[in-house]
Design a protein around this nucleic acid. Structure first.
Lengths: 96, 96, 96, 96
DNA sequence: AACGTTGAAATAGTTC
DNA sequence: GAACTATTTCAACGTT
């Protein structure tokens, strides 16, 4: 048999694909669940449009916080590069 | 007690929002998982870009696929393109 | 001639495509320009990574402001729907 | 005056940032313009999704296209797919 | 039921 | 060449 390696490769690939498709199904189920919660909320009289906007804003807040932290880290690194210079030390003493 | 209804509403709304945000977190986790499988596949030497395309094709049913391909030919003909592609030539022979 | 309509369509399509490709070229030129400004800044001793982060944060601020305004509008609409009820009037009097 | 250098640096940085943000605005405007052309095309009855694909293909050179198509076949073969597509059949006859 | 809007996903490009 | 960013594309949702 010539194609032993090829077949193994094919099997391997197939296995990856199946794992991915399985996970995507689970993900889709969650999407459905989320939609159902919105439906419930709507039935309970809430304005889902507002709900979506509020949730989006909360996500943005979280994202912004992360960005700010990342920026801070970069700053710290930049200062770290200067840490052996007098100005760098003075700056570090402010944030440490 | 004046605000019984109001408070319940607020509680109710809060509960909906929390359920949604919880589900979205789970979804995000799955997205991460999927990304990791793709990373594994990449390490194993597979071309993940192609994998993604194949998975997308598997989702799409055959009818839709054919429709898209046919429409594509029409557009490319309108532009006078396509003559130098093997797959394109085969396709052209069908529509010409 | 049979294909008058078809030809006109083809011409029309071609014209759209050319306009788009023209605009995309201009856009690409701007992308290049931006890259060059970053290069200049780097040569002048600035940390472009930090610059990018700061610019991203400024964009997020702008986006968030817009989101908040949009949310406010939705709120106002929601209140508007209640405007003929006593509670709605009381609420409106708070934001007006 | 102590901070001459610092101030110049700050001014310099500010100027870079403003140039970048200005260019990004222009770029965004072009993106909007492109979107509008697609809208026009859609109103004229064209399928913009296909238009986008065709434009992408025009960007890609022929060699790259063929390579991608060939690899695609290999993967789909590994999964035992592809038998029911007209383009696929033509392609299969090339690699089988 | 098409339309635009918006959020998510994928791809391309860039930097280290 | 690997990671990160930015852009672009795709899909879902509510709306009209």
């Amino acid at each position: 048999m010539n194609n032993v390696v090829g077949n193994n490769s094919a099997e391997h690939l197939k296995s990856f694909m199946e794992r991915i498709e399985r996970l995507e199904e689970e993900k889709k189920a969650l999407t459905t669940d989320i939609g159902e919660v919105y439906s419930e909320a709507k039935s309970a009289g809430f304005d889902t449009k507002i709900m979506r906007k509020v949730i989006a804003l909360r996500k943005m807040d979280a994202a912004k916080r992360q960005e700010q932290e990342a920026l801070m880290e970069v700053y710290m690194n930049a200062l770290g590069m200067l840490a052996d210079l007098p100005l760098g030390q003075a700056a570090l003493s402010k944030v440490a």
